[in-house]
Amino acid sequence: MELRHLRYFAVLAEELHFGRAATRLHMAQPPLSQRIRDLERELGVRLFDRSRHQVQLTEGGALLLEHVRPVLAALDTAREAMRRIRPGEAGMLRVGVPPDTSPQVLANLTAGFTARVPDVLIDLHELTTDEQLTRLREGELDAGVVRHPSDTVGLESGPVARRELGVILRSDHAAAALGGPVRLRHLDGAPLVIFPRAMAPRLYDHMLTICRDEGFLPGSIRHARNPNFVHGLVLAGRGIHLNAAPTTPLADGLAWRPLQDAPLAWLTSVVWVPSRHNEAIAAFAEAVSEGLAAAGHHIADTAVGDSG
């Protein structure tokens, strides 16, 4: 018994007309009739009552249909899953991006990806670095845009994009009044507003280590992830915030200043599970690099290594 014979049977059971069933199956009517007869001989059961004017399911045919439908449905689901992981065949690429990805970067990477593989849909998910790494390893994502340092053991990475960080503070802060680059040690004792550690533990620890080494020990630490909330805390005098230069004007009363000698930076790359790499992931990595470069990131020549 072949699966295609079961599909022929299911289509005929739905149409109850050999001509219409043959048309749906893109085959001639005589071969369809022959396949149904072969199936009946193999099962030893008559599946259809045939007359000159109508075709009807027998009791045996109705019972077989109950068993065949879930088998064919499961087969279709499996084929769809396989189709989605094949590049260039109207599949889908599931990818993660950081929550603070700018609208310009999202627009550019989406357009760049579509230009490269127009038959593959891109399914974007707003996820932190650690959330992305977990879902990649569990097979729920095909690729992720993550910040380094991070636990990328067992994963491959595309080129690393670097963007230097500065500090967002109140306009009346002494460091803002200087107008030029700010040394981290001049911020010593100021409260710090930073993303929650759970979002990217290794990056969080790395940033605080750099701050300590540069002479900046925060007087206190507040955690926030929504940019509006972060800026509100800074404006309310609850701390300073380390981030890249804003892509849109800051609220009145806030200022951004670069850091002297650029000790801190976002290091970003696309990562994926090596065994799942395909043309679509390669196109996504290229589109992300282009999008980040257009937003002011500097693309390195080499990929980041595992950090485990």
Score class of each variant (00 low, 15 high):
residue 2 E to W: 13
residue 5 H to E: 12
residue 8 Y to D: 13
residue 8 Y to M: 05
residue 10 A to Q: 06
residue 11 V to S: 09
residue 11 V to W: 10
residue 13 A to N: 07
residue 15 E to S: 01
residue 17 H to M: 00
residue 19 G to I: 03
residue 20 R to F: 01
residue 20 R to N: 04
residue 22 A to W: 05
residue 27 M to Y: 08
residue 28 A to V: 03
residue 29 Q to Y: 07
residue 32 L to W: 12
residue 33 S to C: 01
residue 34 Q to P: 05
residue 34 Q to D: 08
residue 35 R to S: 07
residue 39 L to M: 06
residue 43 L to F: 10
residue 46 R to C: 09
residue 48 F to Q: 10
residue 50 R to G: 01
residue 58 T to D: 07
residue 59 E to C: 00
residue 59 E to W: 02
residue 61 G to V: 01
residue 62 A to V: 10
residue 65 L to Q: 06
residue 66 E to F: 05
residue 70 P to D: 00
residue 70 P to K: 00
residue 73 A to H: 11
residue 84 R to T: 00
residue 85 I to V: 05
residue 95 V to D: 11
residue 110 T to I: 01
residue 110 T to L: 15
residue 113 F to A: 02
residue 114 T to R: 03
residue 116 R to Y: 12
residue 121 L to Q: 14
residue 122 I to C: 07
residue 123 D to M: 06
residue 129 T to V: 02
residue 129 T to H: 12
residue 130 D to C: 04
residue 132 Q to D: 14
residue 134 T to S: 09
residue 136 L to R: 05
residue 137 R to S: 06
residue 138 E to C: 06
residue 140 E to N: 10
residue 143 A to L: 05
residue 143 A to N: 12
residue 144 G to V: 01
residue 151 D to G: 02
residue 154 G to C: 04
residue 154 G to K: 15
residue 167 V to C: 07
residue 167 V to R: 02
residue 168 I to Y: 04
residue 168 I to W: 08
residue 170 R to N: 06
residue 171 S to R: 15
residue 173 H to V: 00
residue 174 A to V: 00
residue 174 A to P: 07
residue 175 A to E: 15
residue 177 A to M: 13
residue 180 G to E: 13
residue 180 G to M: 11
residue 182 V to R: 13
residue 183 R to T: 02
residue 187 L to V: 03
residue 188 D to G: 03
residue 196 P to V: 02
residue 198 A to Q: 14
residue 206 H to G: 09
residue 214 E to V: 01
residue 216 F to C: 08
residue 216 F to A: 09
residue 217 L to K: 12
residue 218 P to L: 08
residue 221 I to Q: 14
residue 222 R to P: 00
residue 229 F to R: 13
residue 230 V to D: 00
residue 232 G to Q: 13
residue 240 I to R: 09
residue 242 L to H: 10
residue 245 A to H: 15
residue 246 P to H: 05
residue 247 T to W: 14
residue 250 L to D: 08
residue 251 A to W: 10
residue 259 L to C: 05
residue 261 D to I: 00
residue 262 A to H: 15
residue 264 L to M: 15
residue 266 W to L: 01
residue 275 S to A: 08
residue 276 R to G: 03
residue 279 E to A: 00
residue 281 I to L: 08
residue 283 A to N: 09
residue 283 A to E: 10
residue 287 A to Q: 08
residue 287 A to Y: 11
residue 289 S to K: 09
residue 290 E to F: 10
residue 291 G to P: 12
residue 292 L to R: 07
residue 298 H to I: 03
residue 300 A to R: 13
